[in-house]
Design a protein around this nucleic acid. Sequence first.
DNA 1: CCGGCTATTTATCGTTAGATAAATCTTACC
DNA 2: GGTAAGATTTATCTAACGATAAATAGCCGG
Lengths: 209, 209
Amino acid sequence: MSGAPTLLRPRAARKSFDDRRAEIVRKAASFFAQSGFDATTRELAAWLGTTQPLMYRYFPSKNALIEEVYEAVFLQSWDTAWDALLTDRTRPLHDRLCDFYNRYTDAIMHPEWMRIYLFAGLKGVDITGLYIARVEARIIRPVMVEMCAETGLVITPDNEAKLLELAWSLQGGIFYYGVRKFVYATPVHGEKRAMIEAAVDVYVKAWPK
Amino acid sequence: MSGAPTLLRPRAARKSFDDRRAEIVRKAASFFAQSGFDATTRELAAWLGTTQPLMYRYFPSKNALIEEVYEAVFLQSWDTAWDALLTDRTRPLHDRLCDFYNRYTDAIMHPEWMRIYLFAGLKGVDITGLYIARVEARIIRPVMVEMCAETGLVITPDNEAKLLELAWSLQGGIFYYGVRKFVYATPVHGEKRAMIEAAVDVYVKAWPK
DNA sequence: CCGGCTATTTATCGTTAGATAAATCTTACC
DNA sequence: GGTAAGATTTATCTAACGATAAATAGCCGG
């Protein structure tokens, strides 16, 4: 009856190429975090408030967009201030570790980061291996070194593997709190800060001498 | 030229209804663990060595098969002997915990279990919430109780949340070793047994008093 | 206010997914 | 060894996916 086209959705506001492109990457991150990378481009378009073919003006394929999402999530979320924090021996080790893990988890412990991290890992995406290597080089190994400096334990080829895994188990214990909360949507007990405090305390108190 | 049909694959051996059905569930678990639940039924058929429509004789839909895979993986992999192990106070706590975590991780730390657990969690499958609730009731809480019995700490409504999360962080630290190994295919340092030993040691030594 | 540039939409293509129906092969039993 | 039951395969349908091409609409300079 009406001469106007029956649109369920208002026409998307016209934006500059760069603005639209950045918006797609940003919103695609939260969309794929929620729905997984097998979600359809039509659902993504609905999430964006546009039509499905629009993204092909900005990215040659769905996979090309996904690659950009990986880079935005994993490569642009590392604060270089963290590195100095861990090795600042003017502060007590316990404080440094709590401070670091509070800041680090503030950056990664939200649904978007955690779910994309796991989606990408299960998919076998290369960048996750690079990310874990960076975590080991810039968190795990410094934590090990600082812990041993505190207790006076000398790191040798014989005990290094065990000590690295011990530092990983601290990291993993903290990380799994976020997995339970944001991936499994399971109730956790108390605030993140208290959990970090308690876990760090155990490792500082009982790190091998 | 040849009168015989050009089959790339030999005809599947004829099996009884129950045997074939059980085989599909079993092999589907390892298939979906590797390829994710969005892998196609045709790829699954190739994995099974059959044709694609065969599974529809045994399961009404792909999702119905997936549901059975969940149950096989999560509900039938719990050894009731574990429960008694944790609370056997005739043995030193450290030994009990190492023994338990070695057995428990023997059961779950392989690609099939770990990857399906994460796939299901990301997909929001109900059964994962039930599984986590069971872990908390039958591992985390007993560990907390046994630890506190050892140190003499009385569990109160005030400290319970912190203590539960501390027991969770031990579990998570151990679990993340398997995630790195089987989900991210990242090299780990040393054997699982040594990692468990070192982590348990830290928690036993520094559990709050 | 007009003309062109380009962001956005409409329409559609080819492929492949899950699923169904009918045909065929294998086994068990008399 | 013939026959019925049922396990497996072949052939195919419909819907939905990623992707492309052509049409439309909004903005900016003249």
